[in-house]
Computed example of a mutant assay.
Amino acid sequence: MTAISGVVLAYFGLSEAWGKHLQYSKFWNAGSPPSDKQLRISSRVGMLLLYTPALVAAAAAFAVPAVVADDRCRLLALALALHFFKRDFEVVFIHQYSGNMILDSAIPISLSYFSGTVCMIYAQYLTQGEPGPRVDLKVAGEVLFLVGITGNFYHHHLLSKLREKGDKTYKIPKGGLFGLVICPHYLFEIIVFIGFCLISQTLFSFFFALGTLWYLMGRSYATRRWYLSKFDNFPKEVKALIPYIF
């Protein structure tokens, strides 16, 4: 599962950069037009489908005594549950939607989050009784997780304020780190997964964080390219993901 998760996420990231998008958000109808045979669902329902199974999996871990009894395992499950609860909260109360989602795109993302959550907790469970890491990075992971989840929420809030109710047009985001990168919410999402990695300190959490990095790098690259194609006044100095670098 460690190898599969890393490779699949990296492949999705390269596919995004090459223009083969998972069809949700502004890319729901990018590239080839969707076939009439493809099932479309509302973006709100689709986004809930992405995150809710992972939230249920993280919450269910607290019913396992061995998870609750281990400090690192319990902390990891709590962080995962908080992350996906926040995402569902944003879906219901924060995000604005302008289109539909293709079910074929929602399912692999949902499975990725769900399997990643389950495997991350299970990998942590398997470390019980083994010697702990020589350098304990749990506190650093907690700090990065809180920074990442806060920054991600803040920039999602800014994105939601771009359009009035009923307005489905896209605008160039402003405020926060949007003056430096077009996808600061992805940057903070990566910080969240690095936080998971440092809390856990298992091989699976490392490769899942690395795969998430690759996927969001490809997604942010495609997003910047989309803005450049849609807006003549898009500031060229604004990078995709990492200020001044990428």
Rank of each mutant, 00 (worst) to 15 (best):
V7I: 14
L9M: 15
A10L: 12
Y11C: 05
G13V: 06
L14T: 07
S15N: 07
S15G: 09
G19V: 02
K26L: 12
F27D: 00
W28H: 13
S32G: 10
S35V: 04
Q38Y: 04
S43C: 12
V45E: 13
V45Y: 09
L48Q: 15
V56F: 10
A58E: 11
A59R: 03
A61S: 07
V64F: 10
P65Q: 03
V67P: 10
V68P: 09
C73F: 09
C73L: 15
C73S: 11
A79L: 15
L80W: 04
L80R: 05
L82G: 06
L82P: 10
F85Y: 14
S105E: 08
I107K: 04
S110F: 04
S110N: 12
L111R: 14
L111I: 11
Y113K: 06
S115I: 15
G116V: 03
G116K: 03
Y122G: 02
G132D: 11
V135S: 09
V143A: 13
F145K: 00
L162R: 08
Y170E: 09
G179N: 12
V181E: 04
Y186K: 03
L187R: 06
L187C: 13
F188Y: 12
E189P: 11
V192P: 01
F204T: 01
F207P: 00
F208R: 01
L213S: 02
Y215E: 10
G218P: 00
R219I: 00
S220Y: 01
Y227Q: 04
S229K: 11
F234T: 00
E237R: 15
L241C: 01
I242R: 02
F246V: 07
F246P: 14
